[in-house]
Design a protein around this nucleic acid. Structure first.
Length: 427
RNA sequence: GCCGAGGUAGCCAAGCCCGGUAUGGCGCCGGUCUCGAAAACCGGUGGUGUUCCACCUCGGGAGUUCAAAUCUCCUCCUCGGCGCCA
């Protein structure tokens, strides 16, 4: 959520920023917001004047009665006011409701370095790390590797849960847990506090952490309950301090969360996406930070550095892209994606996403920072980055580390988490 | 799921029966004092607006009333007990 004061004081700054997204409907909403906000303030003023009159009369009545005099004339005058107040009040509230509604639907201000573009081809490559292995045999897709080794069962999963689900078996299930443990240990060593969050959230909390469109497109709702399955551990970590004031001396708060992630939308199917590339459920280790506004750009690079260090240790070639205006979404001011090399598809694919949401997400959640009782409270910045989403990471490992004989080598850093195992083998 | 008790400012409480517009303590911020700190004392410490002023705020909503934290109804949430349970 944007600061309404910023919109009042510097509407052109907001307009110019929004123009970069080339979204006419949002621009119209902004203009409506500016207009309705002015009307709301006028309406509020009139309503308040009436309430002031009522309060004054009320006080006089109380005093008159206390001194034993007759207050019936004052009471008769006062009796007219509530009707007028009710009329003005409902008008004021209607305007305010609309103002808030628009405010919730406007996107964050973009950082100046975000590239402008109409689709993801405009994403800007920031750097490339590593070189794809030279492979002189016919590459298999991750799904057929896993199936032929007996390490995954997609058909039975589809029968009992539908497409987009999976059974992982034996060493592949172990690899999943190894990736989680590796990422958690890596970040705990760097002083991030491990969080195991709730896997479901109420709507009121969820509206603060994400785009309203996600409710229709992405999230699973529990039937008959006000509960949604989380799409990422980012969400419960962000909402953790909803409606609170964080003691400024404790910032920055650095967390590493672990959770399964549930998502309805899985997109296109195909021979290379059969398996665990696009799924309704996957495990993910996620980084999250609350910090002072001055520190967020430094910490943004720290989060990105953490994840790159892990993918380097895993020996997976990747590139980093600066995500463009059409692809960045509503919350982030800037976003880096890591795209790992998928040899079978012969292209880079997204495996992590690092966002600086500046004060936008915290304001939606009504989180402030400062000292209790002091005047200078402000809105903290929030940042999030994937550490490792195990599903995509496993696809990358299966494809990049596959051998001519159909086996898969285990990346060295993961072996301590797999009982020293160097090769994935049939159960 | 059933029964009970609760929800008041950053935290803890009072006020509710009997309606008259938010009371105290802790914490925190500022000041006095001090070489500095502690203590003590003084002031401040929810939100909004056109900020010397006014309005709103006692979980949320509706109602009664000139006037609601207080009375009535609805609703949400939390805690405790029972039930179920890894």
């Amino acid at each position: 959520m944007l600061d309404i004061k910023l919109i009042r004081e510097s509407p052109d700054l907001v307009r110019d920023n929004l123009r970069r997204r080339a979204d006419d409907s949002k621009m119209q909403l902004l203009e409506e917001l500016i207009q309705k906000d002015q009307q709301w303030r006028k309406s509020l003023e009139r309503t308040n004047a009436l309430k002031a009159e009522r309060n004054t009369l009320s006080k006089q009545i109380a005093e008159t009665k206390k001194s034993g005099d007759d207050a019936s004339e004052l009471m008769a005058r006062s009796a007219q006011i509530p009707k007028d107040i009710a009329t003005f009040d409902s008008e004021t509230q209607a305007l305010k409701t609309r103002v808030d509604e628009i405010l919730m639907s406007l996107p964050n201000l973009l950082h100046e370095s975000v590239p402008v573009g109409a689709d993801d081809t405009a994403n800007q490559v920031v750097r490339i790390w590593g070189k794809p292995r030279e492979i002189d045999f016919e590459l298999k897709s991750h799904g057929s590797i896993a199936e032929s080794l007996g390490l995954a069962d997609f058909d039975r999963a589809a029968r009992i849960s539908g497409a987009g689900f999976y059974y992982l078996k034996g060493d592949l299930a172990l690899l999943d847990m190894a990736l989680v443990n590796y990422a958690v240990n890596f970040l705990v060593e760097r002083k991030y506090t491990l969080i195991e969050p709730p896997f479901m959230m109420r709507r009121s909390a969820y509206e603060g952490v994400t785009d309203l469109g996600d409710f229709e497109q992405v999230m699973y709702k529990i039937d008959g309950e006000d509960l949604y399955l989380i799409a990422t551990a980012e969400h419960p970590m962000a909402a953790m301090f909803m409606d609170e004031i964080i003691d400024v001396d404790t910032l920055p708060l650095k967390f590493v969360g672990f959770s399964p992630c549930f998502r309805r939308e899985i997109g296109a199917h195909g021979v290379d996406t059969k398996g665990i590339y696009r799924v309704h459920q996957f495990n993910k280790v996620e980084q999250f930070i609350f910090c002072n506004s001055d520190d967020s750009w430094t910490l943004f690079e720290e989060l990105q550095g953490n994840t790159e260090a892990m993918f380097q240790a895993l020996g997976l070639p990747y590139r980093v892209v600066n995500v463009c205006t059409s692809d960045i979404g509503t919350l982030a001011a800037k976003k880096y994606d890591i795209e790992v090399w998928f040899p079978r598809q012969g292209k880079f694919g997204e495996v992590t996403s690092c966002s600086n949401d500046t004060d936008y997400q915290a304001r939606r959640l009504n989180i402030r920072c400062g000292k209790h009782g002091s005047d200078n409270k402000s809105v903290p910045h929030t940042l999030n980055n994937t550490a490792i989403a195990t599903s995509r990471a496993m696809v990358a490992i299966l494809e990049n580390y596959q051998n001519a004989d159909g086996t898969v080598t285990v990346p060295e850093v993961l072996r301590p988490y797999m009982g020293g195992k160097a090769v994935l083998s049939r159960p």
